[in-house]
Design a protein around this nucleic acid. Sequence first.
RNA 1: CGGGGUGUGGCGCAGUGGCUAGCGCGCAUGGUUUGGGACCAUGAGGUCGGAGGUUCGAAUCCUCUCACCCCGACCA
Length: 630
Amino acid sequence: MRERKRCRIQEGRGRRHSKRAGPPRGPDGGGELPRNDRTGARVGGMRFSKLFGKTLRQAPAEAESISHQLLLRTGMIAQEAAGIYSYLPLGWRVLRKIEQIIREEMDKAGGQELLLPVLQPFEFWQQSGRNVAFGESLFTMTDRRKRILALGPTHEEVVADLVSRYVQSYRDLPLLLYQIQTKLRDEPRPRGGLLRVREFIMKDLYSLDADESGLDESYRLVSQAYRNVYARMDLPTLMIEADSGAIGGKESHEFMVLSETGEDEIIHCAACGYAANAEKAEFNKAVESDAGAAPSPGSGAGNPRELLPMEEIATPEARTIVQVADLVDVPTTETLKSVFYVAGGEFLIVVIRGDLDINETKLTNALKCSDLRLATEDEVSKSGLVAGFASPVGLKGVRVVADDSVKSRAHFITGANKSGYHLRNINYPRDFQADVVADVALARTGHRCPRCRSELSSVRGIEVGHVFKLGTFISERFGASFLDRDGGSRPVIMGSYGIGLGRLLAAVVEQSHDDKGIIWPQSIAPYQVCLCSLHADRAEISAAAEQIYEDLQQSGLEVLFDDRIDSPGVKFNDADLLGIPLRLTLSPRTLESRSVEAKRRTEKESRLLPFEDLTRQVTSLLAETRESQP
RNA sequence: CGGGGUGUGGCGCAGUGGCUAGCGCGCAUGGUUUGGGACCAUGAGGUCGGAGGUUCGAAUCCUCUCACCCCGACCA
């Protein structure tokens, strides 16, 4: 008892000492520990007691998504304004690891890294014409000479400018140029923590090729590099067909992480693997067991003589497709619906089969416009149309866009353009014509796959990569051309390939966590090992822990050393919350058997590792963990 | 931009006209503790988002405004 008491008094002193003079010295009286003890910062290790940032027991109320909550609770990020975040040391370590993985894979694919300016002449954007497509999302500022500068949301223009100056011959191609840097977009609505922000670090690669087959090869190479990146982060992704949006271009794919938190809807066919963003997804519009489908789909109309004559039917109060279909007792597939839009200031009517909805992305593309919105009630009535009873039949002076579903059958029911009446036996193109006929329909769960006719389903996803075959529209405008073998001048063919690093980080957290906290894949964990010393105020514990901390670092491991004088629960919970792959616990109990307890973040069980050869055992445990991960 | 919501100490919250604005966590100091977010004591910390107004008196009522979050529009 007396021994014990004395021991405690000494511990008390030690504790006071440690708080004033920093962490206790090494086992043999100090001097041997690496420098920088004042702040605890080391190359491979960090003392929890010195770590900048604090874990929170409760997530701030503004955080809704899991990743947002966990990243705030762990002190990995801190919000400064809507869609603008600071990365604190732990979060920044993770981001840098992601960055390094991406860099390695881009280099492996043959990429050359460079750094491009954030401030870009606004003229670049006028030259490409994309100032219109980006619209208000393009941050701009004015310098002291009143010159307008754009804050780069992406860098195709700058690359095209560089290429116009440095690429002269087909011998200079192909090229894969990439940068990893901050980009700025004035998003209308930032959300979900790091999932959608206004300032973000992005890896953007631009491929430059002499011909289409070169572009195909670049596209293939970079796509494979993307798969490698995700695989190294243990992140399952789905490559889907995508719309190219404001970036422009033809073919485009997105890499999606399936998650309910995701903003994108993916239309997917389990049978043949067809997968596309709902913005882009196609589907088979044939109506099954449709006896009335007189002209076969795609044939336009049949012989007009076989078609029944148009008739007017009274449909009082039936203003919606469902009401009309019920009243006349036909399925909604036998009706046509008309919707009114204003595109580029022009009023237009869009007609589509009654059971389908309009996909505004497809519509925008079909119209080649950049501003599309639903018409207001005022605009509709000014155009002389009666909402609820409108149709393109007999309409003059209004541009008509038809979804190709108008050709999928004959004898539709649609509005008579007078209140209380509809028309029966309406056929395209006998009874109305369209200025544009295109696929502008929205695919949904239950529709048929365009490839194999199996049933499509829908899932949500987070877009963690997007690749585009841009083509030549930017290079042409920047005079980025080269001389081919025959001495002819041709525009460079461009591709563009982006990964948002912060979003990727958030996607990993969305994908890999439990009720205790984050579960980092080893490749991007801020530290590989969390060393917890229990009863850290006891001299013998702290001495042994210091030694282990030292040894682990010497062997090249990244260690977060929880040297705080705190209860075991606090330390264990923080280790779990932070998601460090391997936890080592040193306590009086384990010290007695000259061992530490090792527990993987993903497992419940722990094991004792004897001091002898500890670093080797830890290293091999981590290697096993790496292998066992998918 | 439309709809909804929230602004009170670092975080989570209570406080709907009346005394000095309160609680939990966190923080500081001392003590007791220590294998899954310990306990006791003492203490620091708040222009109640901002401006204007009503009132003897405003965190509380009114007007305006700002910020942030969610849904939609839009957007990589």
